[in-house]
Amino acid sequence: MNQPIGVFDSGYGGLTILREIVRKLPQYDYIYLGDNARTPYGTRSFETVYQYTLECVQHLFDRGCRLVVLACNTASAKALRNIQQLDLPVRYPGLDGPGLDGPTRRVLGVIRPTTEVIGNYSATRQVGILATRGTVTSESYLVEIEKFFPDLAVVQEACPMWVPLVENGEYASPGADYFVKQHIDRLVAKAPGLDTILLACTHYPLLLDKIRQYAPTGTTILSQGGIVADSLAHYLSRHPELEAQCSQHGRRTFLTTDSTEDFDRQATVFFGEPICSENLAL
């Protein structure tokens, strides 16, 4: 039976996560779903993001996925908790109790894996978060980092123009410099001693060269792809009963809720190799 690992994002950015997951765990089958017709999620309400994310997760379950990764910071911040606590136990009940299996479907996000390790990179104990307005407003990173590294001073900066720059292919253009410098300067002004910056949006790695250019010399810039890939590998090793249900043929399937032609052209940039997608009408 084909039971791939599902990877979801509101658009293209999650492909930077999938790229690293495939590099780390190439043996598994994967389905990537980009909800491009309804992107961006970053400016939408909690309820809307939750409903959109749940619809897409449900579709991936219908395709045979037992495990879905929300490779989207906004969806992880605004929808993951509700899906894990309210939907999975009702829709996919399993054996629940000490030492038992829990729901028969699992959904993971990208925030917790990052917050579990971010403090390991900072000597000054001051870190900055660059994210969409939705992720910043949710304060999910502040809450989660406090659990693991209560000694860290964390500042955030919302960068509303960065995703449009990336999705319109302007991430390498001179026009992007203004917006990148503007937000880096604002972030550093909030914590002049910061030595670590987390790119808490999966689109932002495409701006990495410019971010490095304007960040203070010696600053560690963290992208989430490798961190999430390592976390997924550890999760599967800790849950052999779930890992055994994930099919292993090295297959990749790509779905988009919008134009496949547009998706294939853009997605190739994010994923790093040619992509041929299928349209999904939700």
Rank of each mutant, 00 (worst) to 15 (best):
L142K: 13
L187T: 05
P240H: 05
F46P: 04
H203Q: 05
K147A: 11
L15V: 05
E170P: 00
G134W: 04
A71Y: 08
F148P: 04
Q84I: 13
R252G: 01
L15D: 05
S45N: 13
V188E: 09
Y41W: 14
A215H: 05
Q156L: 07
T53R: 07
G42D: 01
T196K: 02
H183G: 04
T115K: 10
T253H: 13
H234S: 13
T74V: 14
C56M: 12
P216W: 11
D230W: 01
Q224S: 15
N36C: 14
S237P: 00
G14I: 10
A172N: 12
D96G: 03
P103Q: 15
A75C: 01
E241I: 01
P98G: 09
D151E: 15
L236N: 01
Q224G: 05
T74E: 14
T257Y: 01
R63S: 12
F149A: 08
F263T: 07
S140R: 05
L165K: 02
A123G: 02
K190A: 01
T132W: 09
F149H: 12
P274T: 07
G64F: 03
R252S: 02
R186C: 08
A233Q: 13
L232F: 06
A267Y: 02
T53C: 00
G109D: 14
Y178Q: 11
A215S: 15
A131R: 10
T202G: 11
I221C: 02
T137N: 12
F179K: 04
L33I: 09
I275C: 03
Y52K: 05
R112N: 13
P93S: 08
T217D: 13
D96R: 06
C159P: 00
Q248C: 00
D185M: 03
A189V: 02
L242H: 01
G99D: 06
L199N: 04
D230C: 02
R186T: 04
Q266F: 07
W162G: 00
L206K: 10
L142E: 06
R112W: 11
D209F: 05
V228Y: 06
A172D: 12
Y12W: 08
V163A: 14
Y12M: 11
E55R: 09
D262G: 14
V228S: 10
G225P: 04
T124G: 07
F149R: 10
G94C: 09
S76V: 06
S45I: 12
L18E: 06
P89Y: 08
Y171G: 01
S259N: 07
H239T: 11
E157R: 11
F270D: 10
Y141P: 05
L222W: 04
R212E: 15
D185A: 13
L280W: 15
P174N: 01
F8W: 08
G226P: 02
